[in-house]
Simulated scan of single mutants.
Amino acid sequence: MRHFTAATLLMGATLAASMPVLAEGDLTRRPEKLPDLVLGTEDNRYLLSQKQYELETGKSYKLKIISSGQTEYALKAPEFFTSIFLRKVEAGDMEIKAVMLTELEFEQEGEAEIYFVPIKPGAFEFYAEGLEEKGMEGVFNVR
């Protein structure tokens, strides 16, 4: 009888572990607004307004990225972009629905807002390509 009880418990635990976990509500709605990420200023074209962001997996965020237009900026975050659920990107009068980002390139003054949910914890670097040595790099810390 003990063997049957242990086997029953093991089977019950296996079934419970294989059941999907359901979240309440839509995780992509009501995003938390992060501090704007400003690329360059009139006084310093290589100034990055934020060097670090603290995020949580499963939480919705929106991040506005603003280019001062002082030079061309190609914002990259390869590992971060592959570890988020990207809901949309808004730029100008456009709303872009995509599965993933590779980079956001600003050839002149402008802004884009990304809406996303981090799905993987870690420390993910972001940078303006070719301008890292000028201090245009930071990190997304996701816990």
Rank of each mutant, 00 (worst) to 15 (best):
F85K: 10
A7R: 08
A91S: 15
F140G: 03
F126W: 08
L9V: 13
M136N: 08
Y127Q: 11
M19N: 11
P78A: 04
G138L: 09
G25P: 04
A74D: 12
I96Y: 07
T8C: 14
Y73G: 00
S68R: 01
A23H: 13
R29N: 06
L15F: 14
M100P: 00
I66D: 00
Y53R: 05
A6S: 10
G58A: 04
P31D: 03
E79V: 04
Q50L: 07
F106I: 05
T102H: 12
M136A: 10
S67N: 00
K88C: 04
K51S: 15
F140Y: 08
V21P: 02
G58I: 07
I66H: 00
L131D: 09
E79M: 06
I66E: 07
Y61V: 02
G92F: 04
E56I: 03
K62A: 09
A23R: 14
T8V: 13
S68Y: 02
E137L: 14
E125T: 15
E79Y: 05
I119M: 13
L9N: 12
P78D: 12
Q50N: 11
G110E: 03
E95K: 13
E109L: 03
L9Q: 10
G92I: 01
T8E: 11
L47P: 02
E125F: 11
G58H: 06
D43F: 07
E95C: 08
G25I: 05
E32T: 15
R45W: 00
V89H: 01
L39M: 06
V139A: 10
L10H: 03
K62Y: 02
K97Q: 13
R143Q: 12
R2Q: 08
G110Q: 02
L39Y: 00
L10Y: 06
E107Y: 13
Y115I: 03
F4C: 09
A91I: 06
L101I: 01
G122H: 06
M11Y: 10
Q70K: 05
K59T: 13
E107K: 14
A77P: 00
V139I: 15
S49P: 06
I66K: 06
S49L: 07
E132F: 06
V139H: 08
R30A: 07
S68D: 07
G69L: 00
K120C: 08
M19R: 14
E42C: 08
V99Q: 11
M19C: 15
M136T: 08
Y115L: 03
G69N: 01
Q108K: 13
Q52A: 14
E103V: 03
E107R: 13
A74G: 04
G130E: 10
V139F: 10
E103Q: 15
L37G: 00
K59E: 01
T8A: 15
V139L: 12
K62W: 04
V117C: 02
E72V: 08
G58R: 03
E107D: 11
L75P: 01
L86M: 01
E54S: 11
E125K: 15
I84A: 03
T28A: 06
G92A: 07
L104F: 04
E105P: 00
R143F: 10
F4E: 12
T57D: 06
E137D: 11
L131I: 09
E125W: 09
K76Q: 11
M100E: 09
G135Y: 08
E137P: 01
H3Q: 13
G12Y: 03
A6Y: 11
F80C: 01
Y127S: 14
A74C: 09
